[in-house]
Nucleic acid binder design. Structure first.
Length: 486
RNA sequence: CGGGCUGUAGCGCAGUUUGGUAGCGCGCCUCGUUCGGGACGAGGAGGUCGGAGGUUCAAAUCCUCUCAGCCCGACCA
């Protein structure tokens, strides 16, 4: 008898959280590091999650009146340098394109950029597209009738990061970037809050993720923004993760790119612009918020596969069992459920563990017993083997969506409960030190905003590797959340 | 970009001190028995030892240079 249940992932979360994270990604076959420095290769199962996220959120943006478009991946260096704070924020992590041709290296057997093919105008690989979109907006907007202008692109961006981790921080990452222009501050602020609410809806209803919605402190703002709104989430190791942001850019970019419009009364005015995004980082958040010591647990509504049907074959009427499985899969598909029979030539236990590590929300086991009795046996991934249930086939098919919904609701409830339990109240910088010192305390600490003005604040937070996450809306900006963060 | 460590089969490692022509575990392929929470046996495929130069009869091993990755900091979605 083993004293301790064997886990599919080694080490466990408690033993070594960062290593556990890497192993979950490998075990679920989500992504791997690539030959390109700091960049990841997203594998089919991982990309399928992103595709599902894109599919849902893209529709919502279109309903809101956002139009998709595509801007160049290469941005003239001169564009980036126009907005002072923006340059300062991004210049140090930009990859630069300087040549347009390769030639054989005379000193070796490789290739080199041809010296005579050096570009007059250098380009940066976009770290974000405020500048090149701002340039376009200046030409596209002329009258108040052109406003608001709502643009978005799904693309990847490149930031030359010193330290990378798959999904959480990679050189290249995938996202959508929305860039909107309004006539006035009210329009821009309303946009930021509206999109932030869309994010929250998306996170809670599809990803089973929740955090704290709020405003960034000035030092955590996006470079070039007057205000940054965000949702800050909490991972199972207690660290914070910025899940999304919306930025009120005021007229900062309008001034530098000349984004003006003619008002109704014939005057001229600057646009107020916004930008907002969430990224493939959310896949990392799903792992770190939902995963357990057996690996990934996919939130049902974005799970690439929601139900796996495992035929339990023993060489006796295998064809009949397979047919029974296929019928169940077909019935589930009719209800819009992503279900699939695992027909691979593997041993049944191996298929089970594969489904567990990939986090498929619902596992259905069908053998001779089930077929004879017209029933199915199913197990919820989030609850494990204890949840094994046998039910009449028709009853199961009819209730499957309900089971998936229940899994979603339970996952969200667990995330919220974890967040609440690990959010501690404090009153002073002393409380912050007492909680986080000596690496003992984890989670978030919520303190009155006055603590930000404590003269020792910067030194203490730096010393303890703490950052301000946001000033949550729930406290009307009177408190600030402090935590270690990814 | 500073400090530390590591590059040997798909993955994880031994071998390096004391040079002698490459090995183990897992995975993979074949066959058989297995298959409802990680099977076992037998056979088999797979490596210019990160790269370049040097010393030597002989280099994974010694020397020089270089590249890449990881961890810890500073910076970031």
């Amino acid at each position: 008898m083993s004293q301790k249940a064997k886990t599919a992932i080694t080490p466990t979360r408690a033993e070594n959280f960062p290593e556990w994270y890497q192993q979950v990604i490998k075990a679920a076959d989500l992504a791997e590091s690539s030959p390109t420095r700091g960049c990841m290769t997203v594998k089919p199962y991982g990309w399928a999650i992103w595709e599902n996220m894109v599919g849902i959120f893209d529709l919502w943006l279109k309903e809101y009146g956002v139009q998709n478009c595509s801007f160049p991946m290469l941005i003239p260096v001169s564009f980036l340098s126009k907005e002072a704070e923006h340059v300062e924020g991004f210049a140090k992590e930009c990859a630069v394109v300087t040549h347009h041709r390769l030639e054989a290296d005379p000193d070796g057997n490789g290739l080199r950029p041809a010296p005579e093919a050096e570009l007059e105008e250098k380009y940066v690989v976009r770290p974000t597209s405020e500048t090149i979109i701002g340039d376009a907006m200046a030409r596209w907007i002329q009258s108040y009738r052109d406003l608001p202008l709502k643009l978005n692109q799904w693309c990847s961006v490149l930031r030359w990061e010193m330290r990378t981790r798959i999904f959480l921080r990679t050189g290249e990452f995938f996202w959508h970037e929305g860039h909107n222009a309004f006539a006035d501050h009210e329009g821009a602020k309303g946009d930021c809050l509206h999109v932030l609410n869309l994010y929250e809806k998306f996170f809670t209803e599809y990803l089973a993720v929740d955090g704290y919605m709020g405003v960034k402190t000035p030092d955590e703002r996006f470079p070039g923004a007057n205000e940054t709104y965000c949702i800050e989430t909490m991972m199972q190791d207690g660290k914070g993760l910025q899940a999304c942001t919306t930025h009120d850019l005021g007229t900062n970019f309008s001034k530098t790119f000349d984004i003006k419009y003619q008002t109704k009364d014939g005057g001229e005015a600057l646009c107020h612009t916004t930008s907002w995004a969430f990224t493939t980082r959310m896949i990392g958040a799903l792992i770190m918020m939902h995963g357990d010591d057996d690996g990934m647990i996919m939130p049902p509504r974005i799970a690439p596969q929601q139900v796996v049907i495992l035929p339990v074959l023993k060489g006796d009427n295998d064809a009949g069992i397979m047919a029974y499985c296929s019928e169940i899969a077909a019935q589930l598909k009719e209800k819009g459920i992503r279900a699939k029979v695992d027909e691979r030539e593997m041993r049944t236990p191996d298929k089970m563990w594969d489904a567990i590590k990939k986090g498929i929300p619902l596992r259905v086991e069908v053998g001779g017993r089930e077929m004879e009795e017209g029933v199915v046996t199913y197990v919820r991934r989030d609850l494990g083997r204890e949840s094994k249930t046998t039910q009449a086939r028709e009853e199961f098919v009819a209730g499957a969506i309900g089971v998936l919904d229940a899994i979603h609701d339970d996952m969200l409830a667990r995330v919220r409960s974890f967040r609440d339990v690990n959010t501690h109240e404090g009153q002073s910088l002393g409380d912050v030190i007492a909680h986080f010192d000596k690496n003992k305390g984890t989670g978030f600490m919520k303190v009155p905003v006055a603590v930000l003005k404590d003269s020792a604040f910067a030194a203490v937070t730096k010393d303890l590797s703490l950052t301000t996450r946001c000033m949550p809306f729930v406290d009307d900006g009177q408190t600030v959340l402090i935590a270690k963060a990814y």
